[in-house]
């Protein structure tokens, strides 16, 4: 991929995202028109309190999840894992559930902290196990992730069921942006910082994907990079689960699609992965708002269907050679 073509790709993706951003500001049960914005304060309030925060939240979440998936795929050297299917999101859910039980009045920030800690523990266990699985069987890792994630999810469900908290749990297990208001989404900005952090170590992540021996041979502190990757994956997942709930597939399909089109040199592709993640999630969120207008379908549901379709395309489309 030449640098010029690469820059055009980034530019194009950014334009698409900008267009979707404007559309997202305009779509919803309440009308927002340019005329209204000019004359009235009510529409301005709607924009500032609900529509803008929601749109920003979707963009931050989409970008963050795509990068978390990308990092997980690089450090496990496996294209078929992502945090929402490998136990990270489920560990985070479990963490929030425990905090809700022990300290119901805990702030959003504290819940995020607790979710991050459990996500970190859950993901660390996944990574440790993944590295023990034979590299000759690449499908064992995602399979193990699925089983592991399901077991953690089942534990969370069992606890919630016993204590009559199932409704709470469903808030976190299905991603939805309709509840996002000013003052209730700002934690997602942590994700943006982590995306930038990932970009700063993009070369190291590319080398990590070449394997442990190559990484150490090139002087990379493999263990520390592993911890950094683990931290970024866990915190992004935890913040997402706390603020909007689990959103599937973004971390799986976006990095794979970008890899097909642009390769795996992450210094070049990481920004594209972030922007594409935001585009995909924003498109799904707008779709969810339009299908049963003025009612909404949660983005987690829309993403589940769209993501599954994209994944099938990835599987059935022959690899582009060249």
């Amino acid at each position: 991929m030449s640098i010029a073509a690469n820059q055009i790709g980034v530019l194009l993706a950014t334009l698409v995202l900008a267009a979707l951003f404007l559309v997202s500001l305009g779509v919803g049960a309440g009308d927002v028109t340019l005329f209204g914005l000019w004359h009235g304060t009510a529409e301005l309030d709607l924009l500032a309190i609900s529509r803008l925060p929601r749109t920003v939240a979707v963009v931050l979440t989409g970008a963050g999840l795509a990068i978390a998936g990308l990092i997980m795929q690089a450090i496990t050297r496996n294209r078929f894992v992502e945090p929402s299917t490998a136990g990270t999101a489920q560990s985070a859910e479990l963490g929030i559930l425990i905090v809700t039980l022990l300290w119901p009045a805990a702030s959003l920030g504290f819940k995020t902290l607790a979710a991050s800690v459990t996500a970190l523990l859950g993901t660390a266990f996944f990574l440790m196990t993944a590295h023990r699985l034979p590299p000759t069987q690449p499908f064992l890792v995602p399979l193990f992730g699925l089983v592991y994630g399901s077991v953690l999810g089942a534990v969370a469900t069992l606890i919630a069921w016993q204590l009559d908290l199932l409704q709470y749990l469903s808030i976190w297990s299905s991603g939805d942006f309709s509840g996002v208001l000013r003052g209730r989404y700002e934690l997602l900005w942590i994700g943006a910082f982590l995306v930038v952090a990932a970009w700063l170590v993009a070369d190291r992540l590319t080398i990590m994907a070449l394997g442990r021996d190559a990484s150490i041979g090139l002087g990379i502190d493999y263990a520390r990079m592993m911890q950094l990757g683990l931290g970024i994956i866990s915190v992004i997942s935890a913040v997402t689960v706390v603020v909007v709930g689990v959103v599937p597939f973004v971390g799986l399909v976006v990095p794979n699609l970008v890899s097909r089109l642009m390769g795996d040199n992450l210094r070049a592709t990481l920004p594209v992965v972030a922007v594409s993640g935001a585009i995909l999630l924003l498109a799904c969120d707008i779709l969810g708002r339009l299908i049963r207008f003025p009612y909404e379908i949660p983005v987690g549901t829309v993403m589940g269907i769209v993501g599954a379709l994209l994944f099938l395309v990835l599987i059935f489309q022959p690899r582009v050679r060249g």
Binding site: M1, R77, R79, P135, T206, A209, L210, G211, D213, A214, S259, R260, G263, D264, N265
Partner: peptide
């Protein structure tokens, strides 16, 4: 050396 990454030879 199993390299699964889609990199060019130059990269």
């Amino acid at each position: 050396n199993h390299v699964g990454s889609r990199l060019t030879v130059r990269e």
